[in-house]
Design a protein around this nucleic acid. Structure first.
Length: 558
RNA sequence: UGGGGCGUGGCCAAGCGGUUAAGGCACGGGGUUUUGAUCUCCGCAUCCCAGGUUCGAGUCCUGGCGCCCCAGCCA
């Protein structure tokens, strides 16, 4: 292993297999691959696979990981997705260097291999309808039966395949199938399809082909051509492994990669299948693939997640073959750990109410120093203006509050962060009984938020000078679904389980002036959470912030 | 009811026959704190069930039970 990496990912059963293969001399150089189909955007589940595959390449000496687009179905794939996927992989911090491939790079070779199968009497052109093929396949408990076209001559098969390739037939008219065993208990082995006719233009090969190879045939061959040593995929392909091995054995390829399956990542209160994500995006239930509520890489990036947090998360959840649903708190913990360490602080009032300091001079203004990071003095301080009228959080005042409430209530003294101690005297209400102003007096001897007499002030609240405040919009996100596993009930439409308040927009947030100069980085709004400007909607004239994640809150739980 | 997998605390996950069953998240409690944040300390399982092998089993055997995946010319 390389010693350049200070923190290697924790080991797992796949790394154990690789270790053993190196130990035994089976392989000297490990080659993995991340093989997305460009038919949608990457999500956090893909990040698990990316971290696994590229992580191995990073940690083992002379190991590499290929990025290969599995583009065998032009009906579903688009160049837009290819570009988005590349961007996401790079953003996560991985580099494929010269190892960028497409399954379509191998279409010529694949065709040669298909002809070889025919010559070896291991493949044939079937002319049954799709419906008949399904009927002939049998079912889980009953064997299938042979197609009447199964025994065509090698010459006829080659001729038919050639003509399929040349576009002489309509889609569905013919199908090249492997000749294996229609009675196999593993349904994947009942003469699976190899090539189907599709009169479609392909993002990479244009109009050259009228037939396109199926996954089972193309994937193992592509792996072999690229010299992949360990082909890592998810559990649902376990049943396909015999077929993966069958093709490579029949074709006698120079390399025979080992397919190893691991379980996909599931996160609670969200969905991870591409089909469902497509449904949410295309149905307008969310605003595009990069909607900050989505578990897509682009959505999380826009929301303010960091690549570090996602990689840390992936290393924490492990790699096994067990079905799992990871709690969102694990992801949030990885995020908070990164942000707490790296985000500078700021004061911002999300739901403002006026706080008026009656004994503070009307026109006086002061500049106070706010610590940028409590654990990093080297981050310095920033200027925060202070004056008679401030905004504080509406929830920081409560009428008739108990002594357990550390914030404002009549007669109680609290500290205004970095500023002064103030004591609440009274409030003003409107005709509806809503509090419109909180009044207080301050102690001039407590500037900076400390007192000489050592008096105890339990509560500290954040504030913003009203006349200096910057108004902004803040979007607060909550879980996308109301239940932990929205996909569990197959009869129920998962979309009916969407959380109607997955986003709450606050338009009158008041922030300290330094937020005007705050770029795109994530900042912590003290006592609230982490926020970053929305990369799509925020402008200098109309600031828009996304709440990345709240701070841990042990008070509201009580 | 065919085939393939999986089953260690609320959620993940180490453990590869032999110290009191790692660790993280969550949860409960104490301390520190100009963020009820951070930090810190403490607590928190006998391993799906039942037999068996063994001086000794979460780890081996047998039999159950439970859950997941497969009948696309999708990947």
């Amino acid at each position: 292993m390389s010693d350049s990496s200070p923190e290697l990912a924790p080991s797992n059963f796949i790394r154990n297999i690789i270790d053993a293969d190196i130990e035994s001399g089976k392989h000297e150089n490990v080659v993995t691959r991340f093989p997305p189909e460009p038919n949608g955007y990457l999500h956090i589940g893909h990040a698990k696979s990316i971290c696994l595959n590229f992580g191995i390449a990073d940690d083992y000496a002379n190991a590499i990981c290929h990025l290969r687009f599995d583009d065998t179905n032009p009906g579903k794939e688009k160049s837009e997705y290819i570009e988005a996927i590349k961007e996401d992989v790079r953003w996560l911090g991985f580099e494929w260097n010269d190892n960028l491939h497409h399954t379509s790079d191998y279409f010529d070779q694949l065709y040669v291999y298909a002809v070889q199968l025919i010559k070896n009497d291991k493949a044939y052109v079937d002319s049954l309808s799709a419906e008949d093929i399904r009927l002939y396949r049998g079912n889980l408990t009953e064997p299938g039966k042979n197609s009447p076209f199964r025994d065509r001559s090698v010459e006829e098969n080659i001729d038919l395949l050639e003509r399929m390739k040349n576009g002489e037939f309509a889609e569905g008219e013919h199908l090249l199938r492997a000749k294996i065993d229609m009675a196999a208990p593993n349904i994947n082995m009942r003469d699976p399809a190899i090539y189907r006719i599709k009169h479609m233009s392909h993002p990479m090969t244009g109009d050259k082909w009228h037939i396109y190879p199926m996954y089972d045939f193309a994937h193992c061959v592509s792996d072999a051509i690229e010299g992949i040593t360990h082909s890592l995929c998810t559990l649902e392909f376990e049943d396909h492994r015999p077929l993966y091995d069958w093709f490579l054995d029949e074709l006698n390829t120079s390399a025979h990669p080992q397919q190893i399956e691991f379980s996909r990542l599931n996160l609670d209160y969200t969905v991870m299948s591409k089909r469902k994500l497509h449904e949410l995006v295309e149905g307008g239930y969310v605003n595009g693939w990069n909607d900050p509520r989505l578990p897509t890489i682009s959505g999380m990036r826009r929301r303010g997640y960091t690549a570090n947090a996602i990689r840390d998360f992936c290393s924490r959840i492990g790699v096994t073959k067990k079905d799992n649903i990871i709690e969102m708190s694990v992801l949030e913990n990885s995020l908070r750990e990164d942000l707490n360490e790296n985000a500078t602080r700021a004061l911002a009032v999300l739901d403002p109410i006026k706080l008026i300091i009656d004994n503070y001079p009307d026109d006086k203004e002061e500049i106070l120093a706010g610590v940028n990071h409590p654990k990093k003095p080297e981050e310095g301080t920033r200027d925060i203006p202070f004056s008679k009228e401030l905004y504080i959080e509406r929830s920081d005042y409560m009428e008739g509050a108990s002594k357990k409430f550390f914030r404002l209530t009549e007669g109680r003294e609290v500290r205004l962060r970095f500023a002064y101690y103030v004591t609440c005297t009274h409030v003003v209400k409107d005709e509806n009984g809503e509090v419109t102003e909180v009044h207080c007096t301050y102690d001039p001897e407590t500037k900076g938020g400390k007192s000489e007499d050592g008096r105890k002030v339990k509560g500290t609240i954040h504030w913003v000078s009203a006349k200096h405040a910057v108004t902004a919009e803040v979007r607060q996100y909550d879980r996308l679904f109301t239940v932990p596993d929205p996909a569990s009930n197959k009869e129920q439409d998962f979309k009916s389980l969407l959380n109607p308040s997955s986003v709450q927009v606050l338009t009158n947030c008041q922030m300290e002036p330094s937020m005007l100069q705050s770029g795109t980085e994530v900042r912590q709004f003290e006592r609230q959470g982490y926020f970053c400007q929305d990369s799509v909607d925020s402008t200098v004239d109309a600031l828009v912030f996304n709440r990345v994640v709240t701070l841990r809150d042990s008070w509201s739980k009580k």
